[in-house]
Computed example of a mutant assay.
Amino acid sequence: MNIVAPTPDFSGVEFATSADGMPVARIDDLVLAMVTSHSGFAFLASAVAVRRPLAELTRADFFGHDGRVANEAEFRMRVAETAGHKHDLAKLNRVQTRMSASTPWGGSQMAVVYAEGVVAHSTAGHGGFHLSSDRNAKVHPLLRKDTLWYEEDCEWAIVAISFPDLFTDCERSMAEKTIRNTWPDVWEKIHGCSLAEGESWAKDRRAFDQRHASDYVVTSAIFSDKNPGMTEVVAVVAGDRGAGDRKAWDNERRFLVPSDEYARRGRFGFVIDPDRHAEYHGPSSFLGWRSRGIGS
């Protein structure tokens, strides 16, 4: 299956360039900016109730870190998603209130009633949805829980795809992505098709682990202060990572990898190529390895 991105809708959005050169956009009383960090990556920041012209704004007007963006095109896509979310949210009849409730994460401090039988609770440390028995019975059997509680990190997505009319387009899109990334096997059974590479984090990670089960994969890395331009890494056989700390410790090896090559590592880790990355036995830049009497 190939996931097709929707065409962005920029209605009601004002775009401009800030006084210090940042792409910025205004959606009602919310202003978003694409901020470039000192490390060179860009991320989304926001400002609320800033009335000045966009061209007069600077980095000092913005706060927060709402995730990285690869380029200005992705920034504009995020702006469109936010605008659509705000527009859809205004049509929903969610009610924020306080209610006495004991949740799996502690006492409820704030609740949002999405509809009868669908309530989101926030606590001091976590939160999630509570469904009535009738609502829970409508959840797909492959995703339904025995309890009536669905935590806010991943399981909220089960609630969203079960009752899509209670959520915005943006939330439904995020929920579908969360299901694919977290429970790919269930997603495939429900939809009757297979997810391609790149469409599910969990499925891709499983494939990576299977493909490199016998390879050394880096677990920690540090710029080498003994070998300029190189990164000293510690690696273990990937298949041993779930076999217990003792076995992984016994199989740890150190290697030197060119720093520019290590910087291009994949999202699941850097795989050692024994034909190009020689095992390293010299003085270590890792304090932990020095404490083992290796390097000084």
Rank of each mutant, 00 (worst) to 15 (best):
Gly266Val: 15
Val271Lys: 06
Phe63Pro: 09
Val69His: 03
Val13Lys: 10
Arg276Ser: 12
Asp165Ser: 13
Asp169Asn: 12
Phe75Leu: 12
Gly269Met: 08
Leu32Pro: 14
Glu199Pro: 00
His38Lys: 13
Asp66Ile: 06
Ile190Lys: 03
Arg254Ile: 01
Gly293Ile: 15
Asp209Cys: 10
Phe62Asn: 14
Ala33Cys: 11
Phe43Asp: 03
Ser200Arg: 02
Asp275Asn: 09
Glu81Cys: 05
Thr123Glu: 00
Phe75Met: 07
Thr178Asp: 07
Leu166Tyr: 12
Val186Ser: 09
Gly295Cys: 05
Val217Met: 13
Ala137Asn: 08
Thr178Phe: 07
Asp28His: 13
Glu188Arg: 08
Glu261Thr: 12
Glu155Asp: 14
Ala175Glu: 02
Ser291Tyr: 10
Val35Arg: 02
Val69Gly: 06
Arg254Gly: 11
Ala45Val: 03
Val113Ala: 01
Gln96Met: 12
Val233Phe: 06
Ala80Glu: 08
His212Gly: 07
His281Arg: 07
Lys145Glu: 10
Ala70Phe: 15
Lys177Asn: 13
Phe223Cys: 12
His191Ile: 03
Leu30His: 12
Ala73Arg: 10
Val217Glu: 05
Arg52Ile: 06
Thr58Ala: 03
Ala202Thr: 00
Phe167Gln: 11
Ser194Cys: 05
Lys138Asn: 04
Ala83Ile: 10
Val119Tyr: 01
Ala278Tyr: 08
Tyr262Asn: 11
Cys193Asn: 06
Phe255Gln: 01
Asn71Pro: 15
Ile222Leu: 08
Gly107Cys: 00
Thr182Pro: 04
Glu232Pro: 03
Ser200Leu: 11
Leu89Asp: 00
Trp156Gln: 11
Phe15Tyr: 13
Ser285Val: 11
Asp20Leu: 01
Leu57Gly: 05
Arg206Glu: 14
Val31Tyr: 13
Val118Cys: 12
Arg180Pro: 11
Asp185His: 06
Ala175Arg: 05
Ala160Tyr: 00
Ala25Glu: 13
Val113Gly: 02
Ala60Trp: 01
Ser37Tyr: 03
Ser224Ile: 04
Asp245Ala: 14
Thr58Phe: 04
Gly40Leu: 08
Lys247Ile: 14
Gly117Thr: 14
Gly282Lys: 15
